[in-house]
Simulated assay, not measured.
Amino acid sequence: MTISEVSEKFDIPQDTLRYYERIGLIPRVNRNKSGVRVFTETDCNWVEFIKCMRGAGLPIEVLIEYVALFQQGDETLQARKDLFVEQRRLLLKRMEDMQKTLERLDYKIAVFEDKIVEAERTLGRPKN
């Protein structure tokens, strides 16, 4: 696949894909004789993985560390697992925080709805 096809498939800007390759988040993508990147299925799997992890909020630095460990082979299995266990813990904490924020927003919205109904009753305006 070309970079434009990968960009469209994963909804990631081409510049972002180039950046990810430049900083080592995805391994070097092979190029054809014209110098155009040719993404393999393996390359696309890396793109999908990085997109998923970034979407969950994992920092680029952590992902760079993971890729570096991955490239070192199976002797880094425990280190990679430990890295993800810690990121999972942090993600769960963020999710808890977000749930609390969502509950607070729901409460505030309900308060506004009650005040709007009361104001309409007091002012004698019909509901829309």
Rank of each mutant, 00 (worst) to 15 (best):
M53W: 03
M95K: 08
R37C: 01
R31L: 03
G35K: 03
M98C: 12
E8L: 11
Y20A: 02
E48T: 01
P59V: 08
L83F: 05
V67A: 03
A56W: 08
D11G: 06
N30C: 08
F84H: 09
Q78I: 12
D82L: 13
C52F: 10
L69I: 05
A79P: 06
E75V: 14
L90H: 10
M1T: 07
K108H: 14
G35S: 02
D43K: 00
T2Y: 03
F84L: 15
R94Y: 12
Q78F: 09
M53S: 09
K100C: 11
E61F: 03
T2E: 03
Y66E: 07
S7M: 07
R18Q: 03
G57F: 04
P13N: 10
V47F: 01
D82A: 15
R31Q: 07
T76H: 08
K9W: 02
G24D: 04
T16N: 10
R88D: 14
L92A: 10
G35I: 02
D15K: 13
L92W: 08
P27L: 05
E103P: 06
T76G: 09
L92M: 13
E65V: 04
D15V: 11
V6Y: 03
W46T: 00
R31N: 04
E86I: 09
G73H: 11
N45I: 00
Q72S: 12
L25W: 00
V62W: 01
Y107C: 11
E8N: 12
D11I: 06
F70S: 13
L63G: 02
D97P: 10
K100E: 15
M98H: 09
T76C: 12
V62H: 02
I3F: 01
L92F: 12
Q72D: 13
N32Y: 01
I12Y: 06
Q14I: 11
K33D: 13
L69V: 05
R22D: 12
W46L: 01
N45C: 03
Y107T: 14
R37F: 01
L63D: 03
A110N: 15
N32L: 01
W46D: 00
G57K: 04
R37K: 00
L102D: 15
A110G: 15
P13R: 11
R28Y: 09
E65S: 08
I26V: 08
F39R: 01
M98W: 10
C52S: 07
T42P: 00
C44T: 02
M95T: 05
A110E: 15
V29I: 13
R18A: 03
K100I: 12
C44Y: 00
V62Q: 04
F39S: 00
D106G: 13
I50D: 01
Q99H: 13
I3M: 02
K81T: 13
K108G: 10
L69E: 07
T42Q: 07
I50S: 01
D43N: 02
E86K: 14
G55W: 14
V67R: 03
E41A: 06
I23R: 08
K108M: 15
R54A: 03
D106Q: 15
P13D: 07
L105V: 15
K33H: 10
K100S: 14
P59I: 06
E75W: 10
I23K: 06
